[in-house]
Design a protein around this nucleic acid. Structure first.
Length: 772
DNA sequence: GCGGATCAC
DNA sequence: TATGGTGATCCGC
């Protein structure tokens, strides 16, 4: 019955997982069908397979509930979401950075290649590195038989009986990797190694310096021939996908133009993107999304069905955006030891194994001088079901006995819970986290804050001082490595956004900006200053009515903004007269264009003018990409960089799209010049009224509000009944509202953080392309 | 903070 | 005979 279907699906999935769906079986190897059959025969009926089925079912349930949620989304919700998402997309677009040249280096079948190098006899034979239980990699001969990484060796042997399985020799791979890294360091001393065989390089600076080199010094990078694959692109996400393209010399380049990026992205299957795994792919596929174009088209829907972190991530992918700086991973957050073994069901044995693992872990921890407060044990039973149990203690631990004391109790609880049946384990692990380093820093923060605030606290009234924990939370994102991963940033955003106060968003903004480590302290004190300001009364400019609010606290100011937001939309029509009586006295004074908004004057270049990197060496590619980069700066044909480049609009009738059209039209009518915008009037594309502010952020807030008002009005006019419908998904609605708040507030944070300082006019021409 | 899940390598 | 180990992150409690 249904079960057989389920099993069939799971088989397919297993095959997919093993990369056989796109198997290019050669003459020498096996055809796809045979490979599939062998794998299925070897797999079915096993406990492993049973567990795979179970997991599969869970994923299907997730999908079902997602589809259920989808069916309850109203068209109004979708339109509203479209607005929100497009607003964010514009923001992302404005900050698109094409100035970097990122290279992703990936060594092909690295372990196998090293083994073949050291033992030429293996060269013409199918080999794999690993064990009968698990293979790490295989060479191309073996791949013709369907032998892949992450496949158990015993199955590989069935596929290819003559397969030679070489036990891994990590010391050797490390040594080779080190040699390669020395070369990489010449191109980018700060390159980011992801593993022994993979790294990202930012060669932007190298390319600049290289220009002045004598000809003979420019030596070739890619000596290894086809065994090294590289991807050259304006950001890491694209570079990673590129290196997988494996074009002629194992090299592929996306030129630093928006058009080149979008062309590349267009038909790219989302699964190719790092971060989109099997499950995400399946969930998105259920929504009809396979390619990045589809991902973009469904952006509004995705924002309603997925978490903010997720849809932001999806939107980044859909726009071809990614990290442009190679953020070093910060300090480690956990350390663990785990081991798989043949079934152990004797309790005493389990405890002694646990002790061994704790001893190993303690040794590793001590090597790095780490102490942690959270101990987690991991258990996998013979049916492959995994459980973790954790306990956090007040003081940091590092010795084997200390760790075991906790791990033992966790294990005991599980043993007792299963009693009288013994646990039938096939894996056990112990992990340490919540390192005291983090705590130390928290303490440090507290003392720094205490020190910096001491003077002020003495002066301020008791009711005005910040809560201590609050301050710690507030500073934390800054204290962390200034360079953070996408997810780190998102997490900071989320943490901060829980506190509905502009001072948090100051942190957000800074956390999102790349900054030099040396600036961290300065920024921290700025933020502290800002947070202090939040308690002091001062002057703010309301982004809604553009009136100065003098001598009020931030809280009071927020109330004012809220009132402004609520007031007019409830009582006024879409002409929004409230925007026309802006006080012009202060505009232009407080303007501070954020450094991040710097891309507008970047020029696109003719793609055709750049020699294709295909078939040429990396050095040439570098040079041409440098050429491209300099042309990009010097060129003058800006109008190519238009928003409509983005793949099809899924909802052409939405206001947001209308706005986008208007905005783009405006841009093409008024070609971008390098003129500084100061003093230039900004006309709102929605209400068509000139705004008496030259602060871009404020202006954007205005446009945002206009758009929202438009929607509200539209809903009033067209769909009065449904506005009063019961909330079908209050969670989503709440999220939208929260998100809407967040995007409105940024106008405030710049004001707050700079209100005491007069920032010099930015030397950059700092205007986003839409509003020129 | 916990536990399950997902993802990458 | 037989499907890994390590680290990170996210989400919903």
């Amino acid at each position: 019955m249904d079960n057989t279907k389920e099993k069939k699906k799971c088989k397919d999935d297993l095959l997919l997982r093993m990369g056989l769906n796109d198997n290019k079986a050669g003459m020498e190897g096996l055809d796809k069908e045979k490979i599939n059959k062998i794998i299925v025969d070897a797999t079915k009926g096993s406990r492993f397979y049973g567990n795979e089925l179970k997991k599969e079912k869970q994923v299907n349930q997730r999908i079902d509930s997602m589809m259920q949620q989808k069916s309850q989304i109203t068209s109004q919700q979708l339109r509203k979401a479209q607005l929100q998402v497009d607003r964010f997309a514009m923001e992302l677009e404005r900050n698109r950075n094409l100035n970097n040249t990122i290279v992703h280096v990936d060594m092909d079948a690295f372990y196998a290649a090293v083994e073949m190098r050291d033992n030429p006899e293996l060269k013409d034979k199918p080999i794999a590195v690993g064990s009968m239980s698990m293979l790490s990699t295989s060479n191309y001969h073996a791949r013709r038989f369907g032998v892949r990484a992450a496949m158990p060796g015993f199955i590989a042997k069935r596929l290819c009986p003559q397969l030679i399985i070489v036990p891994p020799n990590f010391d050797k791979y490390r040594a080779v990797s080190k040699e390669v890294r020395e070369i990489l360091a010449e191109y980018d001393p700060n390159f980011l190694a992801m593993s022994l065989d993979e790294a990202y390089l930012n060669i932007t600076q190298h390319l600049e310096e290289r220009q002045s080199w004598p000809e003979d010094k420019r030596r070739y990078f890619n000596k290894a021939g086809n065994s090294v694959k590289t991807g050259i692109a304006p950001n890491t996400m694209l570079a990673k996908v590129c290196s997988d393209k494996n074009k002629p010399n194992g090299q592929y380049q996306i030129l630093p133009s928006r058009k080149a990026v979008m062309d590349f992205i267009k038909d790219l299957p989302i699964r190719k993107v790092s971060g989109i795994g099997k499950v995400t792919e399946k969930m998105l596929m259920a929504l009809g999304i396979v390619t990045c174009t589809e991902l973009y088209q469904q952006r509004a829907l995705l924002s309603l069905l997925f978490s903010e972190t997720s849809w932001h991530y999806f939107l980044h992918i859909a726009l071809g955006l990614g990290s442009t700086d190679l953020a070093r991973d910060g300090e480690r957050k956990s350390m663990s030891v785990e081991r798989t073994f043949s079934e152990i069901s004797h309790t005493e044995e389990q405890f002694s194994l646990c002790r061994e693992l704790c001893t190993e872990l303690a040794r590793d921890l001590q090597k790095e001088g780490l102490k942690g407060r959270t101990v987690t044990i991991k258990l996998k039973n013979v049916n492959f079901e995994v459980k973790t149990r954790a306990s956090t203690v007040p003081s940091a631990l590092s010795t084997a006995e200390e760790i075991f004391a906790i791990a033992k109790e966790l294990l005991r609880t599980e043993v007792n819970a299963g009693s009288p049946h013994p646990l039938r384990l096939r894996l056990m692990g112990v992990r340490m986290s919540t390192f005291s380093n983090e705590d130390d820093k928290k303490h440090q923060q507290r003392s720094i804050i205490g020190f910096l605030q001491a003077g002020q606290q003495a002066l301020s009234s008791p009711g005005c001082s910040l809560d201590k924990t609050d301050k710690t939370e507030f500073v934390k994102p800054l204290e962390m490595s200034p360079k953070k991963s996408f997810f780190d940033k998102k997490r900071s955003e989320r943490i901060s956004s829980h506190q509905d106060s502009p001072r948090c968003e100051i942190v957000d903004q800074q956390a999102l900006q790349p900054s030099q480590p040396s600036q961290a302290l300065k920024k921290m004190s700025e933020s502290l200053e800002a947070s202090e300001n939040s308690n002091n009364c001062q002057t703010f400019t309301c982004p809604v009515c553009f009136r100065d609010q003098e001598g009020i606290s931030l809280e009071a100011f927020n109330e004012h903004v809220d009132a402004c937001l609520d007031g007019p939309s409830a009582s006024e029509n879409s002409e929004m007269p409230s925007f026309s009586h802006a006080s012009s006295a202060d505009t232009g004074q407080k303007e501070y264009a954020h450094p991040s908004i710097t891309l507008c004057e970047k020029q696109d270049h003719e793609d055709g003018e750049i020699t294709s990197a295909d078939g040429v060496d990396l050095v040439e590619a570098e040079d041409s990409s440098l050429k491209a980069a300099s042309m990009d700066t010097l060129g003058s044909n800006h109008s190519k960089e238009e928003y409509p480049d983005i793949p099809n609009q899924s909802c052409p009738s939405s206001l947001a799209d209308e706005a986008v059209r208007i905005l783009s039209k405006q841009e093409s009518i008024q070609p971008c010049t390098d003129e500084v915008v100061t003093g230039q009037a900004l006309v709102c594309p929605v209400c068509n009224q000139e705004q008496k502010t030259s602060d871009l952020t404020l202006f954007n807030v205005h446009v945002d509000i206009c758009l929202n008002k438009g929607i509200i009005q539209e809903l009033r006019n067209k769909d009065i009944n449904s506005v009063n419908q019961p909330k079908e998904s209050s969670r989503n609605t709440d999220r939208l509202q929260k998100a809407a708040r967040r995007t409105k507030r940024p106008g405030l944070k710049t004001k707050c953080s700079t209100s005491k300082k007069t920032k010099p006019p930015s030397p950059r021409h700092t205007l986003d392309i839409f509003f020129k």
